[in-house]
Computed example of a mutant assay.
Amino acid sequence: MTAVAGALGPAAQVPAPPGRRAALRTTGLLLGLVLLAVVVLASLAIGTRQIPLHDVWSALVSPSGTENDAIVRQLRLPRTLIGIAAGAALGLAGAVMQTLTRNPLADPGLLGVNAGASAAVVTAISLLGVESFDLYLWFALAGAALAAILVNLLGGSRAATPVRLALAGTAVNAALFGYVNGLQLVDLGTLETMRHWSVGTLAGRDADLLVKALPMLVAGMLLAFGLARPLGAMALGDDSARALGAHVGRTRVLSIAAITLLCGAATAVCGPIGFIGLMIPHAVRVFSGPDPRWLFPACALYAPVLMLASDVVGRVVVPPSEIEVGIVTAFLGGLLFIHLVRQRKVAQL
């Protein structure tokens, strides 16, 4: 636990009194609920066409068939719901990944999930002629699962260590993205189709995709929350975790399964959106601390805030065009990554 606290800076190493710590965590979660409500309203009201909040409310509770009603209910509401679900999944997957690997720079892509999903979708488009986003969902999920299984096997399966998992994930990522880029270069039709999926966006996604992916998202979240206690023990090191009664190998395998379900389903619906799983755990540790029992719910709450806020920013910076949410989060995540590396605190893990 000292190592994890060290990664968060000097202030994190001085434990707050239990009462103050509980109050800080509760306040942080309540603030997250307020921020989520604000960005949901912003997502429904702000865009190429600005819609007053009272019209948004009317469209939701008593639609009268106006154009504003159609925009809110048919375009922005599905987009917002997908952003909430995908954001929560990516944030939670990032928290599980960082806790599992004891690496503050880890995000779900480290397990090859994004690369596996992309490789499966590009194969479906180029070699199988698939053109339906509904089918992309299942190919992306299958590709994410196969990539995660491969990384786990290369990392040593139940005997895997955080370092071996990270190295195996890096190798699989490089190989799969090389395959994706190569297939797109030799098939321009695939390149044109993939660019609409691979950039990572909430625009143009049908709510039916979310309905189909929801069982996987819910299963991944339940599994992640159920692993909070043994993952907290593993943050002390494998030997200490075993002494505390945690099943290290089983916990690691189930954690990889949770990450695959969460990130695979989110990637299948929205395309690969990076850095949310990296940024949010760092941000919420300010009040949640490193304990996964508090960290995981906080990440699941604040990640949709970042996702929707980034989506709203992308709508308004270059009107009437939009910047995809994946580009906005990549820009923000790149700045955070540079900040973390410059502080050199990651070396303390």
Results as ranks from 00 to 15, higher is better:
residue 196 H to C: 04
residue 46 I to M: 14
residue 112 G to C: 07
residue 117 A to N: 02
residue 253 V to Q: 12
residue 208 D to R: 14
residue 107 D to G: 09
residue 86 A to V: 14
residue 39 V to S: 00
residue 322 E to S: 11
residue 94 G to P: 02
residue 52 P to K: 09
residue 46 I to C: 07
residue 280 I to T: 15
residue 241 A to C: 13
residue 252 R to A: 04
residue 40 V to C: 13
residue 300 A to P: 00
residue 30 L to N: 06
residue 89 A to G: 11
residue 246 A to T: 06
residue 229 R to Y: 12
residue 200 G to W: 12
residue 15 P to F: 14
residue 162 P to W: 09
residue 8 L to N: 14
residue 194 M to F: 15
residue 23 A to E: 10
residue 286 V to S: 04
residue 263 C to P: 11
residue 224 A to K: 09
residue 264 G to P: 06
residue 185 L to M: 13
residue 265 A to N: 09
residue 266 A to P: 01
residue 15 P to Q: 12
residue 124 A to R: 05
residue 308 L to C: 04
residue 284 V to H: 03
residue 166 A to D: 05
residue 266 A to R: 04
residue 348 Q to I: 08
residue 106 A to D: 01
residue 83 G to A: 06
residue 305 V to P: 01
residue 306 L to Y: 04
residue 171 A to K: 04
residue 176 L to A: 05
residue 210 L to M: 03
residue 263 C to H: 15
residue 182 G to D: 05
residue 145 A to I: 01
residue 186 V to L: 13
residue 69 D to F: 06
residue 306 L to E: 00
residue 84 I to C: 06
residue 231 L to C: 09
residue 3 A to I: 10
residue 340 L to M: 06
residue 145 A to H: 02
residue 255 S to G: 07
residue 267 T to C: 13
residue 246 A to Q: 05
residue 229 R to H: 13
residue 322 E to V: 12
residue 15 P to R: 11
residue 45 A to T: 02
residue 209 L to C: 03
residue 38 V to E: 06
residue 273 I to K: 01
residue 89 A to K: 08
residue 54 H to S: 13
residue 332 L to I: 04
residue 201 T to N: 15
residue 53 L to F: 14
residue 166 A to V: 10
residue 176 L to W: 00
residue 121 V to K: 08
residue 330 A to Q: 12
residue 243 A to H: 12
residue 60 L to W: 12
residue 113 V to M: 07
residue 179 Y to E: 13
residue 78 P to I: 10
residue 56 V to H: 07
residue 227 L to N: 03
residue 183 L to D: 00
residue 310 S to E: 07
residue 177 F to M: 14
residue 252 R to E: 09
residue 3 A to R: 12
residue 348 Q to P: 01
residue 113 V to I: 15
residue 340 L to T: 07
residue 203 A to C: 10
residue 309 A to M: 03
residue 241 A to E: 10
residue 132 S to C: 05
residue 184 Q to F: 00
residue 1 M to D: 07
residue 156 G to C: 15
residue 76 R to K: 08
residue 54 H to V: 14
residue 224 A to D: 07
residue 148 A to R: 07
residue 312 V to L: 10
residue 18 P to F: 03
residue 98 Q to G: 05
residue 46 I to N: 01
residue 117 A to F: 02
residue 337 F to N: 00
residue 302 Y to A: 04
residue 133 F to M: 09
residue 10 P to V: 10
residue 327 I to M: 12
residue 320 P to F: 15
residue 297 P to D: 02
residue 260 T to I: 03
residue 165 L to E: 07
residue 341 V to Y: 06
residue 49 R to I: 08
residue 333 G to E: 04
residue 146 L to V: 13
residue 56 V to G: 02
residue 207 A to R: 14
residue 101 T to P: 00
residue 147 A to N: 08
residue 104 P to M: 11
residue 184 Q to G: 13
